[in-house]
């Protein structure tokens, strides 16, 4: 499993594009927001928690179809499926690799972009925490979506239709945590909910993703 994770990370870094692309997309969306809603600082501060979360979510969505598509095309996915490692483990590691290459950079970059949107100072810790806890769930849900659509020729658009509704609970609790943080309240409850969703996704979705992969490899 560790070897598979290393392989995926090496591929993501050396192939280029995939690694920085999500981050650049995140930056661009956040830069576009003030053009859309106007530069007033109070307005930006109010919408900052939600916009940061929505932008992070879209950036995570952007790189999902790479999770399995490349391996499917060059035939290494069937090899992985016949290896002694169970397919559930493969799906889990793919999700982890996706998180390390997109979720983690997004989490680290988010506070910097928070400055651009005039996020209130008390919210930074919660932003960092909720993204760190929530983006793994986004990656794992996305891995399931990618596993379902891997055999399709133009699966990208369909996958966003499948995956985005599944993102709703994570988004609600994640941005609520940041919003409460920005208002100076205690955000422990939404944070715990985000952590619960993430743990639940990691416990259950590898099985669903593996089932979908088995169907697609049949």
């Amino acid at each position: 499993m560790i070897a598979l994770l290393k392989r995926d990370l090496t591929l993501a870094v050396r192939a280029g594009g995939g690694f920085g692309l999500g981050l650049a997309f995140f930056l661009i969306v956040i830069v576009l927001v003030p053009f859309g809603v106007g530069p007033e600082a109070e307005v930006l501060a109010r919408i900052a928690p939600g916009m940061l979360w929505v932008a992070a979510l879209l950036a995570a969505l952007l790189s999902l179809d790479r999770i399995f598509a490349l391996d499917f095309e060059d035939g290494s996915l069937p090899l992985l499926a016949t290896s002694p490692l169970p397919l559930e483990g493969v799906a889990l590691m793919k999700g982890v690799a996706h998180w390390v290459t997109t979720g983690l950079p997004l989490t680290i970059a988010a506070p910097l972009l928070g400055f651009l949107l005039n996020l209130s100072p008390s919210a930074y810790l919660w932003l960092l925490g909720s993204l760190a806890l929530g983006t793994p769930a986004l990656s794992m849900i996305g891995t399931f979506g990618a596993a379902v659509t891997v055999g399709l020729k133009r699966g990208g658009l369909l996958m966003s239709l499948l995956v985005l509704p599944l993102y709703v609970p994570t988004l609600i609790f994640g941005s609520e945590a940041v919003r409460r943080g920005a208002g100076g309240f205690d955000a422990t409850i939404p944070m715990l909910m985000v952590a619960g969703i993430t743990l639940g996704c990691f416990a259950l979705l590898p099985f669903a993703a593996a089932a979908a992969l088995r169907v697609n490899l049949r």
Partner: peptide, 27 residues
């Protein structure tokens, strides 16, 4: 294939639909 994948999606979707239902209450 379509029947299998949509069935898996339906099961996962049901879990998330219930989750969303309560998440929205919170929101």
């Amino acid at each position: 294939t379509a029947a299998d994948l949509t069935s898996v999606l339906c099961i996962v979707g049901s879990v998330f639909a219930v989750l969303s239902r309560y998440a929205v209450n919170f929101w």
